[in-house]
Computed example of a mutant assay.
Amino acid sequence: MSTPTAHPRPAAPASPARVAAARAGARTPGARPLRARTGFRLTFLVPGALALVLGLDAALGLLGLPQLLGPALGLARLPDVHGPLMVLGFVGTVISLERAVALGLPPGYTAPAVSGLAALAIVSPLPLPVGQGLLVLAQVTALLVYRQLLARQPAVAVTVQVLGATAALGASVLWLGGVPVPALTPWLVAFLVLTIFGERLELARTEVLSPAASRAALGIAVALLGSAVVSLLRPTRGSRSRGSACSPSPAGSPRRTSPAGPCVPPGCPGSSPPACSPGTPGSPSAGRSGRSAERSPRAVATTPCSTPSCSGSSSP
């Protein structure tokens, strides 16, 4: 006995107005949301581009070269804000715009907008605390964007970028509190390194990282941010821990030392004086010009100095 086939009920015909609206939307190229248009996104890059150009002009002044834009525009404090302008103003604006595009929500564009305004404010004739306060607000809004991205994708790569944004917030707060720009270097470096590190991890999603590799990446990121915190109280110890986090040396690796102490390249503080050159009285190769002439420069450079003049004591 055959069962009757059930025929689907035909759908109700769409109204002519709805069909016309759908056709008009398909034919109109400007039907995309405003935040998805290239011109809208490029407006947030304009302050970042200006920060880059002004930062390069400030670098000329710091190198002792004549500036091109600073004196012409009356930007007297441009060399003093070079570091925050380049790192937080230029790079911060670009990174926050990239994260806003990745989020895809209109509130996310608040971060690059405030960051661009802060970059222009710190070089303008406005009081410097105005620009510094805007920088703090920009980092807070960037962290709010990262919070939503982390809720959407709880991955190690996003967590590392959150730690980088935290370093940027710490640098902004410290600068607003009166900490000089040279002391902000560990925080600015942590922001740059952790942001790039997190993005490289994010691009490596095609290859699944092992749990051990993920834990190692997160541990390095936490150690780098911790070294910035330690540098506020112990600058030397913070620099050492930051170097260990970025480039750990293999355990048990030998260190070459000379009788006078560690091997220091010539010209650096603590290096041996030029009395250790071949043919100088008191040097190991004195009186043996024939043999020293046959030596290669590398052999001469690596010859340890054992005379009093080379070991740090004063020559007679």
Rank of each mutant, 00 (worst) to 15 (best):
G219M: 04
G83F: 00
L150I: 11
R237H: 04
L149T: 06
V19Q: 14
G282M: 03
L62H: 01
F191H: 10
Q139W: 13
P269F: 09
P297R: 03
P112V: 11
T303K: 03
P29E: 04
G226D: 09
T3H: 12
P127W: 07
D80F: 01
T302L: 14
G219Q: 10
R288M: 12
T195D: 02
S309E: 14
V156K: 07
L194A: 03
P211T: 11
G270Y: 05
T166S: 11
L194W: 05
S289T: 06
T206S: 12
G177V: 05
R99C: 02
L137V: 14
C276W: 11
S277P: 00
S2R: 14
A213D: 10
P125G: 05
R147I: 03
P250G: 00
A11G: 06
A190T: 14
P248W: 05
P66R: 15
R18V: 15
S239E: 13
A76C: 04
P182A: 05
L149G: 06
P265H: 10
S283Q: 02
G83T: 01
G70E: 01
S214T: 11
L62M: 08
S124A: 15
V114E: 06
P29R: 14
A183G: 00
L137H: 08
S311Q: 12
P84Y: 01
T3F: 13
V91P: 01
T166F: 07
L126Y: 09
V87D: 00
P107W: 12
L143C: 05
T302H: 07
G30A: 14
S285C: 03
V229L: 15
P266D: 13
P4G: 06
A26Y: 05
P154N: 09
A157W: 11
A20T: 13
V145R: 08
R41K: 03
V222C: 06
P278Q: 09
R205N: 00
A118N: 08
A301Y: 10
A26H: 14
G198W: 04
V123H: 09
P269L: 10
L176K: 01
V229P: 00
A155I: 02
P106D: 11
V46N: 04
G170W: 12
L174A: 15
S258G: 01
P47I: 01
P66L: 01
